[in-house]
Design a protein around this nucleic acid. Structure first.
Lengths: 208, 208
DNA sequence: GCCATGCCTGACCAAATGGTTAGCATGTTG
DNA sequence: CAACATGCTAACCATTTGGTCAGGCATGGC
């Protein structure tokens, strides 16, 4: 791993080091010195390249987001575009999870893009009869994306619940993606009770 | 709000202040001094009561978790137990999201509990015919919980996608919970294609 | 009155932090 | 060769940080 890192420019090495540390500990708990040490450079060089800690953080954001964008946006079909995100290294995933929680502008933009693409994809599916229509396509797309992204934030706990070392072991992914597809295909609830209950609440509130 | 806070013990006031700040900014970026100022006490008192920053953080964890546990665990039916979590103040929600991401022991234990209760509840539903059976009940329960918890981590983005100021406005909750129930009731995909595709991948991998 | 106890603070400390500056190599270009 | 940009560092700085300590100020029991 080190040997693979050695031929990267110092700038890239610093960015990678920051990515790992920020992802693992949270931006606030990581000092520029720690980043520098991990990248094998002086802490002044970090500032030289990124001007400030905030600058470094933004660079990380942009880099990660560009990693996820990767291919053409149009192929965000199914879990495809999202898969790229989930297949990234553990460090990148943790970083992304934090970026979403912190609500950095880049993460927000990325989220919006994904929702947009997903909504188009779902509506395309509706037209082709592969996807059920929804009363509120926008809300469904947003929530759908949220669900697909959820393992980013809860991966560690998911892994523990499934009793695997890492959610992104192929074995684990297969297992819980199966559960996900199952729910997306057949739903969870057998009857319409929950929907009816919701409608009742809606009506009650509407009449107040 | 101040007047409501005034009659709390200083210890509680400090804890609440920490909760808000930690949730909003992340533990690493919040200083004990900032917490003290917000609570209207000296920063020495924070240490006096909680011994260290880590102590304060643990106290927050325990408090938040106790809030969520609230009622008897058995009534974690449907979204009930989870609703408590989602209905908590924005600050508590953000804090929880961070706690899950950071993987604090208390958060991990809470997650495990919820998964356990949810699995029992789902299996009960299966026996009563209200819930579809699953090939892998454990994985389904874990993923289901993850999905219900997802708004904790992505609430801000969800709100933006739905164009509401806060995901927990009643209006917004009704809207996206409807979408969720829709998906949980009817699924998303109309055919079994995705399931078949998964089985194909499974078979291919298994034969390698 | 007086001492004990619990809540609370100001002053202090060593360490760490983000950031600046001057300067050292190492090319590269005229 | 001189001039100059580039990548990099050591030394330094002001500020902030988590944490300690001695003591103030109530309250209440004796």
């Amino acid at each position: 791993m080190r040997s693979a890192e050695d031929d990267l420019t110092a700038r890239a090495r610093i960015r990678n080091a920051a990515l790992e540390l920020f992802g693992a500990e949270g931006v606030g708990r990581v000092s520029l010195r720690a980043v520098a040490t991990r990248a094998g450079v002086s802490h002044a060089l970090v500032l030289h390249h990124f001007a400030s800690k905030e600058g470094l953080r933004q660079a990380c954001d942009e880099y990660v987001v560009s990693l996820v964008r990767g291919g053409p946006e149009a192929d965000l079909g199914d879990t495809a575009g999202l898969a790229a995100m989930l297949e990234a290294g553990a460090a990148v995933r943790r970083y992304l999870g934090r970026a979403f929680l912190d609500g950095t502008p880049q993460a927000a933009a990325l989220f919006d893009e994904i929702v947009e693409a997903t909504q188009r994809w779902l509506e395309q599916g509706v037209r082709e009869g592969r996807v059920h229509p929804s009363q509120d396509p926008r809300a469904r797309a947003a929530l759908y994306v949220t669900w697909l992204l959820a393992p980013l934030a809860f991966g560690e706990h998911l892994a523990r619940a499934l009793d695997v070392p890492d959610v992104h072991d192929m074995e684990a992914m297969l297992r819980f993606s199966r559960a996900g597809i199952e729910m997306f295909t057949r739903g969870v609830f057998a009857g319409e009770d929950a929907l009816d209950a919701w409608d009742a609440i809606r009506k009650e509130r509407g009449s107040r």
